[in-house]
Nucleic acid binder design. Structure first.
Ligand SMILES: [Mn+2]
Ligand SMILES: [Mn+2]
Ligand SMILES: [Zn+2]
Ligand SMILES: [Zn+2]
Lengths: 137, 137
DNA sequence: TCCTAGTTTAGAATAATTATAAACTAGAAA
DNA sequence: TTTCTAGTTTATAATTATTCTAAACTAGGA
């Protein structure tokens, strides 16, 4: 839950002018209890449904890219030619249900590794992501 | 390492006529020691470099799709709008190096989980994939 | 050798994303 | 408050990845 003031601060703090469009998109993304997994297309539909608001698709793309650069959202791994984003910027894992094509968050501490390989020399581990694919029982 | 005969059998067994083009692509994909991670674009470059061979891009796409359906290759998760494929069809994990944008295989048994969450009701786990992102030390 | 279903191909079509450049606006300064 | 301008939005064009189309080709059984 984020008030308009908080949203404006969030934008200001990342050098993004709090325009009408960015505030509206930020509300849609961040003013919710659950993590939101979305694509440019789904976000555009959410925003521009019923002709209530009107934000151009170019602005949707620009804003998503700006929010990503600012670290307010992160891009997630998928297997189709469409970029997916996640409002949960903490390290965490996912269930993936191929039937609904939906991701569900798994808290980082819900997965504990007993053994992982050493990184190649000269490299260290930045992040570790687990995707658990599901199927009907 | 796969002989031409083996490759032809592999194609026949999945109801794919062993055409000149498919044999050539299969050799490029499967006649190598290490796993090959590729996109339609990189495969096309490998095949059609120096005008030695000439296989149309449409055939590259058709063949990759056919090999995927037959289970000879698998598609892997990425974060950009380009399909990546893997000649290693066993369940396994990856290191991802954002600098070189290259994946490296990790054997399934190199990763052992101490704790994973229960799947949502009505669902069971089909697969579990780990991607370990790297950075410079 | 003939026949035909399956395959390849160039090119068109589509889908996702990014670039362009003109109009608009937030907000600092006058 | 008004002015000014860099930053932003927008329609639209361009680009990139992929899929479709339909004509030409070919593997391989009859
Ligand atoms: Mn795909
Ligand atoms: Mn991307
Ligand atoms: Zn998530
Ligand atoms: Zn692999």
């Amino acid at each position: 839950m984020q008030q308009k003031k908080e949203i404006i601060n969030k934008l200001r703090s990342s050098n993004l002018r709090p325009t009408k469009q960015r505030i509206l998109i930020a509300k849609k993304l961040f003013d919710r209890k659950e993590t939101f997994h979305f694509t440019a297309e789904t976000l555009n539909k959410e925003i521009n449904r019923k002709g209530q608001n009107k934000i151009s698709l170019a602005t949707i793309y620009n804003t998503v890219e700006a929010f990503k650069r600012a670290g307010h959202i992160r891009e997630i791994l998928t297997n189709n030619c469409k970029s997916y984003y996640d409002t949960n910027i903490k390290s965490h894992h996912h269930f993936y249900d191929p039937d609904s094509k939906k991701l569900t968050d798994i808290d980082y501490q819900e997965v504990i590794m007993k053994k992982i390989p050493n990184p190649p020399k000269g490299k260290k581990i930045k992040d570790l992501e687990v995707v658990i694919s599901l199927q009907k029982k």
